[in-house]
């Protein structure tokens, strides 16, 4: 910083807080995926089989996820049914 720069109005370069916020979000998200229980793929497969007894659906029409909060975990099951 030279003599004159010192008095110039500074451009806001305080980007560290933005970096921290972005990191906290992405790291939390990726940790969540990492901690998914390992029975999920098998669970998804069996759910598919059960549903297929009644409705014909393809593999990608069932989505299973576990959402963890502080106090409890929620098993989220998303089934897309074919249009009649």
């Amino acid at each position: 910083m030279s003599f004159f720069d010192y008095f110039k109005s500074k451009k806001d370069n305080r980007t560290a807080s933005v970096a921290k916020e972005r990191l906290q979000i992405i790291v939390a998200h990726e940790r969540g995926q990492r901690e998914q229980p390992d029975y999920l793929p098998a669970l998804q497969k069996e759910l598919l089989e059960v549903i297929r007894k009644y409705v014909q659906i393809s593999d990608d029409m069932v989505q299973v996820e576990v959402d963890r909060n502080d106090s409890c975990s929620v098993l989220e099951l998303n089934v897309t049914l074919p249009e009649k």
Partner: peptide, 16 residues
């Protein structure tokens, strides 16, 4: 650069 708010601090990285 940390003092100027341009770089993540030790505390930030430790926290994450």
């Amino acid at each position: 650069r940390v003092n100027r708010g341009e770089m993540l601090s030790v505390a930030d990285v430790e926290e994450i």
